[in-house]
Design a binder for these strands. Structure first.
Lengths: 197, 197
DNA sequence: TTGACTACCTATCACCGATAGGTACACTGG
DNA sequence: CCAGTGTACCTATCGGTGATAGGTAGTCAA
């Protein structure tokens, strides 16, 4: 033990896991999320396919690590943002940042917000990260006077609908996302109107 | 030729194709859309997997036939509906029928409106059917005074967002879809306000 | 020096979509 | 009635995929 940093092997292992996940994203960007293959991933890493099972107990576990990774990065981005004081402007800025981040990487968007792999369901731990992201959005909405669960559901579904239409039909464009600010106003006005009659 | 109905073989073949597609939907409902396998489908049909290639040149061609089938049924449903005279009520009734139909069959909903099989893209002919469906919706919207492409896009994305959230997070429930009528009003009011200032 | 541990490896499995080539049967024209 | 043609299947096999079993060279602390 002496002379060796405690947990050096664990650190090295964690670094290798992170390297594999990063390479997996790279491969997904090249081949599409459906074209991600353990054989192909191993080839790109310079190892053999069964060796990956030392780091992930299944392909879905790899997806899960990628899912968690994407949500962590999104969380970082949302938390790093300086928001305007005006709650409504904060909601707009926050959602704009969300949409920008999400649309910047098609396979990541698909893995995080669509269900492109029918057998993949995120683990409880990874799903908790997604709920953290949702929690940030809800906090912004709450500050803008949107507290009703139904209003929150509708708002989230609207943003998801825009993102989904954008990535599916016009990736890289703004045909849907350009309406984001206007729709945020529409939803906030409507929610405020009904909560304070 | 005499004595045999013209195109009897073609008819029998078409009937067999329809039977295979129906069995494929059945299997998809049992095993999930991702669990649909040519081997499994053939087994359920009492034939061998390569025999399916007499009817579909690839698995994606089978998906394509299912995609077309689902859209045709949806189109029938929409066209069979008697709509209220009031354009706004017509939009609501139409969208309610749309959402009901779509949510009644999870795998069908996934194949038609999500992208659960990364390698599958509908053919031009099948996609035209999906555009017919969209055309019906647009006609209803137009009658209600929504003509701007941006407004149509937002409306469609909103409905898709509701459906997606509902099927993904609360299949069989109404947590999202129960807001449909209210959101239709919200969108129509907004569109009308901006088109006739 | 030794013994455990790490980070790989080879070999192999079942299953999947896809292709090649063969066969029993029905129907039709002569 | 018979020969020929097309239908609707079949068997055998391929390459690729995720997954498992079991082996091995190198590292490192005692």
């Amino acid at each position: 033990m002496i002379g060796t940093p405690a947990g050096a092997v664990a650190e090295r292992r964690a670094a290798r896991v992170a390297e594999i996940v990063a390479t997996a994203w790279e491969l997904a960007r090249d081949e599409g999320i459906g074209g991600l293959t353990l054989h192909g991933l191993a080839r790109r890493l310079g190892i053999r396919q069964p060796s990956l099972y030392a780091y992930f107990e299944s392909k879905n576990a790899l997806y899960d690590a990628m899912f968690a990774d994407g949500n962590r990065k999104l969380l970082e981005r949302l938390d790093a943002q300086r928001l305007p004081n005006d709650p409504r402007r904060a909601v707009k800025a926050s959602m704009q940042a969300f949409v920008d981040f999400v649309l910047a990487d098609t396979p990541r968007c698909q893995l995080l917000f669509q269900r492109p792999i029918p057998t993949f369901e995120p683990s409880a731990e990874s799903y908790a990260l997604a709920e953290d992201v949702l929690g940030r959005v809800i906090a912004r909405l709450d500050a803008a006077g949107v507290e009703d669960q139904g209003d929150i559901d509708c708002f989230v579904a609207m943003v998801a609908g825009l993102v989904d239409a954008q990535i599916s039909n016009d990736p890289g464009g703004t045909r849907w996302t350009r309406h984001l600010d206007r729709l945020v106003d529409l939803y906030l006005d409507d929610a405020n109107r009904r909560s304070t009659p």
